[in-house]
């Protein structure tokens, strides 16, 4: 991988982040309610509104406001939450840390489960093991996260069974065992849905690889089935699997939003929904920007991993 490629990808990440920030800011500018009205209520006097508008800089043209907001963001200042009156930055960053824990645990489990499942299905193509995996993944792909999460919650956290807590969060620094206990159900939900997506893709990649010429050549050389499967076909299917997992990070982010809402988990998704319900602009902008940038960075990392692992790829 060349330095030029790295720079090119990094600069396109910056451009994406810039455009996304403009979109996020632009969308929130279209909101019907003005922040000053939100703070003072609908019975505020014209004078009070005008004073507050001037203090918040809301009487200035949109691009000046954007620049104020954006230069603040670059310094880690995301503004003041209209709902709580506290700084958005620390709130959203600690929420981001919590969400990242959910997402990383889910990604780890998905990689450990879905790749073997996909390989198994492809190797046993057309046989009961393949049918079983395909059927389960069809089911998983067709079950929205909120349905699965609610069903798991109603079942495993019910007073009768009580295996897991129904909601809330305990920091890992406080008590890691209880922390794991609290994230178990949200992570399980995310893992099941994502595994269904990824194992389907891994299966179809693996099937293609098993039919390719070099695998046939390896078989014709008299190598054992096992050796062909693990030493020839598998390494070639792992690369696309990385891309598939990276593409599914978009799903994962959507899933995190939903799952946090179901389990009352204090992450970015929950803050985002609260911000939308309360028209809390600064929080909405910060949450949306953070998620979009995370997605872009994840895609960049996947590209780089692909480049490092596959020696044949020569990026210009």
């Amino acid at each position: 991988m060349s330095l030029g490629f790295l720079l090119k990808r990094l600069s396109s990440l910056v451009v994406t982040a810039l455009i996304v920030s403009v979109i996020v800011f632009g969308i929130t500018q279209l909101l019907p309610a003005n922040a000053a009205t939100m703070i003072l209520g609908e019975y505020a006097t014209e004078d009070a509104l005008a004073t507050l508008n001037a203090r918040l800089g809301l009487d200035q043209p949109a691009w000046v406001q954007y620049w104020h907001w954006f230069s603040g963001v670059l310094h880690g200042d995301f503004g003041i939450s209209l709902r709580t009156g506290q700084a958005v930055g620390p709130t959203i960053l600690s929420a981001f840390g919590n969400s990242a824990i959910l997402a990383l645990f889910a990604l780890l489990l998905v990689s450990l489960v879905s790749i073997p499942l996909g390989v198994l299905a492809a190797a046993k193509r057309g046989r009961p093991a393949d049918m079983g995996v395909s059927l389960l993944s069809y089911l998983g792909v067709s079950l929205p996260e909120f349905v699965l999460a609610t069903l798991l919650l109603a079942w495993l956290a019910s007073p009768a069974i009580g295996l897991f807590p129904a909601s809330g969060y305990v920091p890992f620094s406080e008590d890691w065992l209880r922390a794991l206990h609290h994230i178990a159900l949200p992570v399980l939900t995310l893992t099941i849905v994502l595994t269904a997506h990824v194992s389907r893709m891994v299966r179809s990649e693996m099937v293609d690889t098993l039919e390719s010429d070099f695998v046939r050549a390896a078989r014709l050389r008299g190598l054992s089935r096992k050796r062909v499967l693990y030493r020839h076909a598998l390494p070639n299917s792992l690369l696309p699997a990385i891309t598939v997992i990276a593409l599914d990070i978009g799903y994962l982010i959507g899933g995190v939003i939903v799952v946090e809402e179901v389990f009352s988990f204090p992450g970015v998704g929950r803050q985002l929904i609260l911000a939308i319900q309360n028209r809390d602009l600064p929080m909405l902008q910060a949450g949306a920007l953070l998620m979009a940038v995370t997605y872009a960075v994840a895609n960049l990392l996947a590209d780089l991993a692909y480049g490092v692992l596959d020696k044949r790829i020569q990026f210009e």
């Binding site: 451009v15 994406t16 455009i19 996304v20 979109i23 996020v24 969308i27 929130t28 909101l31 978009g250 799903y251 982010i253 959507g254 939003i257 939903v258 985002l272 929904i273 939308i276 028209r279 909405l284 949306a288 998620m291 979009a292 997605y295 872009a296 895609n299």
Partner: peptide, 16 residues
């Protein structure tokens, strides 16, 4: 750039 926003997040922003 629009595709760089996860679709549920995009839908949430529009709904807001």
């Amino acid at each position: 750039a629009l595709m760089a926003i996860p679709s549920l997040l995009f839908a949430l922003l529009i709904l807001s």
